[in-house]
Design a protein around this nucleic acid. Structure first.
Length: 308
DNA sequence: AGGTGATGGTCAC
DNA sequence: TGACCCTCACCTG
C-alpha cells in the first residue's frame, strides 16, 4: 500500500527495529546479493523517507535506497523470545530481495527492557540499490515538496501548478511537483475540496491549493499514524479523537515522521470516490465516474466536482 | 492452471 | 501512449 505515508511509517519502523544495531543484511532471493554483501556488518544509522523513496543509512555513508513501486512491501517484524531468551528466525517466504536481521540486545538506557530481535523483509520493490550521499541528494533534488517533511515548501508546488496546462489530477501525481501523493490520496483530496480533476493547474485558485496542501498535511500524518489511508471526515475525526493531537503532527525537525503503533486497530476501509465507480456518491447520490488518465484509474463525482 | 489487477515509475517511440 | 518491471492475492475455469 505504498503512498508516502507508507514510506514514512516504514522509516520509523526501521529506526525502531535497527537504529544503533548492526543488522545482518542478506538477499535470500539473490538479486541483491552484491548490495547486501556491501551493507552487511555495518551499523544501521537511521532511515528517512522523501516522498515515496526510502533511504536507510549505514555506517560509512552507504545508503540502502528503496522504492516500493506499486506492489513492493517491506515488512518489519519483532521476533518473540522464548522462555530461554532465544528466538527463532523465520525462513524467508517468497521472493525476499533483502532481509535485515538484528539480534536484539540486553537492557540499556535506551531500551530498559532489553531490545527485541527484528527481521525486515523487502519484496517486490521496483528499485533497490546501494547509494552514495550524492546519489541520495540527486534523488531528493528531483522531488517536489513532501507534505510529511517538516520544512516542505508548498510554494514550490504552486509555482508549477499555477503555470501548467496539465490537469490538477495529473499534477498531484507528479512526484516532481508534489512528493508522496499517490492515486488514492489524489482522488480523495480532490473530492474533499470538490475540485474537478480535469481542471488545468493554471485554473486552480491559490486558495484552493492552500486548502489542498493543508489537508494533505493533516491526512498524511494520520495515514502514517494509523498505517492506513483515511480520508472520510468521520474517520478523520475518529482518528483525531483517538488520542491523535493534530497540533503534535508527527513530523520531527529532521522531517522523519515519528512512528507509534496504531492504538485502535484498523478502521473500516472506506473512501469517498476511490474505486467506487458506478456506486453512489456519498454526498449527492450521483454515480461515481472513472476514467483512465495516463494509465492510472481516476475516480470522481461528476456532480460534486463539477467545474465552476 | 492460468489470468488479472494493484495505492508506481521508467524508458522508448 | 504503450511496454515493461516487480510480487502475490484473488479470481476464473
Amino acid at each position: 500500500m505504498p503512498e508516502g505515508h507508507t514510506l514514512h511509517r516504514l522509516a520509523g519502523s526501521l529506526d525502531t527495529a535497527f537504529a544503533g544495531t548492526t543488522p545482518a543484511v542478506s538477499s535470500p532471493q539473490g538479486r541483491f546479493a552484491d548490495g547486501a554483501a556491501l551493507l552487511d556488518g555495518r551499523a544501521f544509522v537511521g532511515a528517512q523517507a522523501w516522498g515515496k523513496h526510502l533511504f536507510a543509512e549505514f555506517a560509512g555513508e552507504a545508503y540502502l535506497h528503496v522504492h516500493l513501486g506499486l506492489i513492493g512491501t517491506f515488512d518489519v517484524t519483532p521476533l518473540p523470545r522464548d522462555d530461554d531468551g532465544g528466538y527463532a528466525v523465520p525462513p524467508p517466504v517468497g521472493a525476499v530481495r533483502v532481509r535485515l536481521l538484528s539480534a536484539g540486545g540486553p537492557p540499556s538506557p535506551e531500551h530498559p527492557g532489553g531490545r527485541a530481535a527484528y527481521v525486515a523483509d523487502l519484496r517486490g520493490a521496483t528499485l533497490c540499490e546501494v547509494a552514495t550521499p550524492d546519489q541520495v541528494d540527486d534523488v531528493v533534488a528531483r522531488l517536489g515538496p513532501d507534505p510529511l517533511r517538516a520544512h516542505a515548501d508548498p510554494e514550490r508546488a504552486w509555482a508549477r501548478i499555477s503555470k501548467s496546462q496539465r490537469s490538477i489530477a495529473d499534477l498531484l501525481m507528479d512526484q516532481a511537483v508534489l512528493a508522496g501523493v499517490g492515486n488514492v490520496y489524489r482522488c480523495e483530496v480532490l473530492f474533499r475540496h470538490r475540485v474537478d480533476p480535469h481542471r488545468p493547474g493554471r485554473e486552480i485558485r491559490r486558495a484552493t491549493w492552500e486548502k489542498i496542501w493543508a489537508d494533505l498535511r493533516l491526512l498524511l500524518p494520520i495515514g502514517v499514524r494509523l498505517g492506513q489511508i483515511v480520508t472520510m471526515d468521520d474517520q478523520v475525526q475518529e482518528a483525531l479523537l483517538g488520542g491523535y493531537d493534530p497540533a503534535a503532527v508527527p513530523i520531527s525537525p529532521t522531517g522523519v515522521s515519528a512512528w507509534r503503533p496504531n492504538p485502535q486497530g484498523a478502521l473500516e476501509r472506506r473512501y469517498y470516490v476511490y474505486k467506487r465507480q458506478g456506486e453512489l456518491c456519498r454526498v449527492c447520490g450521483s454515480r461515481i465516474r472513472t476514467a483512465q488518465v495516463a494509465g492510472r484509474n481516476l475516480y470522481w463525482c461528476g456532480r460534486c466536482q463539477r467545474r465552476r
